[in-house]
Design a binder for these strands. Structure first.
Lengths: 142, 142
DNA sequence: ATAGATGCAAAGAGTTTGCATAGGT
DNA sequence: ACCTATGCAAACTCTTTGCATCTAT
């Protein structure tokens, strides 16, 4: 089995406290505050372990770098802001998706991604957000 | 403007004749048959030019390598076979997607991806397809 | 003749792996 | 004590860029 180390606890904490999926770089940067000098390789290895243990899930957005979030958030989809490039969680889903595939295709799961401009960036605060170190947590969960 | 060279014509032809989005590697491999010794860099540069000219569009599927297809296929979505990893075009769309985003978010476009097993792989021909050099064109367009 | 395109090789970004050391059990 | 995790650096993959040469206009 896997050991519980300080680095892994910190990584998991970072992912849980963020209200949105994070990239490995995001994670490393955040984690550095609690565990200085943490290596990127450690982040990648921890992510791989957590995925295998189904503690987190990868979120791969077309046009964005792969990112990760806790697995306990249930079925949901994502919104990516074209301005600040951040990924947000959405709630809800739509029906009738299986109908898009030919009948001899077997549909196992689906992904929906919305692209646009988030509330922050719409308010004209786009540039400052873009440069932020991203401590702010923009959860859309109620 | 851009010149019309043999390589570019071949690349565009390959994309048009394929019934599904292709990766740069796919394209290079196919194009080699008509233009031996074509370089990968040439493919990437041609793709960039074609995208700028809006002749082709990038198709970025979560969990798959980025691929490309002609821009004149209209609004549609994609299916990725978990077995052979190929990307197929779907026809049709669903409504009510904007409703998934908070009202202060501006939705500009969307992407829907279905994952599952394609007809070929369901028929038990998965392994041979997986190893194929992919000359076969699996269009879903009617 | 000139500007753009090609092929190669080198350079970058992102991710993975080998290895010696440190740390959890 | 044993086995796993860490950090570093090297290796790998995918994509981009520099440069000399070639080609379309």
């Amino acid at each position: 089995m896997s050991y519980s180390t300080r680095q892994r606890e910190v990584i998991l904490n970072v992912l849980r406290q963020a209200g949105r999926p994070l990239t490995p770089q995001d994670i490393r940067q955040q984690a550095s505050q609690d565990s200085a000098g943490i290596g990127l390789a450690t982040v990648y290895r921890a992510l791989k372990t957590f995925i295998a243990e189904e503690v987190i899930v990868p979120v791969e957005i077309p046009g964005a770098s792969p990112c990760y979030e806790p697995a306990d958030r249930g079925h949901h989809h994502h919104f990516i802001c074209q301005q600040c490039q951040r990924v947000f969680d959405l709630t809800g889903c739509v029906h009738g998706l299986e109908a898009l595939a030919p009948q001899d295709f077997c549909v196992q799961r689906h992904e929906i991604v919305l692209y646009g401009v988030c509330a922050c960036c719409t308010e004209g605060r786009g540039s400052e957000v873009e440069a932020s170190t991203d401590q702010d947590l923009h959860s859309l969960h109620k």
